[in-house]
């Protein structure tokens, strides 16, 4: 099972990204587990400088923007 991690301190964009990622994963039909990481120390450990960021199983896939649904699907599969 994949772990989808949403990195961000809780801004509107982070919420958008979480919703898009959730929808993308559901539409792909993969079993997944969505985690929001809001603690700044943990975010920094990923090496991310701009939020929101998306990571899958600890690997950063996108940072500093809210990708589209299609882009997130491509990043997840």
């Amino acid at each position: 099972m994949k772990t989808i991690q949403i990195l961000g301190t809780g801004c509107t964009k982070c919420k958008n990204l979480a919703e898009i990622a959730d929808r993308a994963a559901r539409e792909l039909g993969q079993p997944y587990h969505l985690v929001k990481i809001t603690e700044i120390r943990e975010i920094m450990a990923f090496g991310v400088l701009s939020t929101p960021a998306l990571a899958v199983d600890g690997v950063v896939k996108s940072a500093g923007k809210v990708p589209t649904l299609a882009e997130v699907k491509a990043l997840l599969s």
Binding site: I40, M44, L49, S50, G64
Partner: peptide, 17 residues
Amino acid sequence: TPFCSCSAVPLFIGFVT
């Protein structure tokens, strides 16, 4: 550089560290 003030904290920490 693309910058949004909502990312000011991770950016600041990332730079100085």
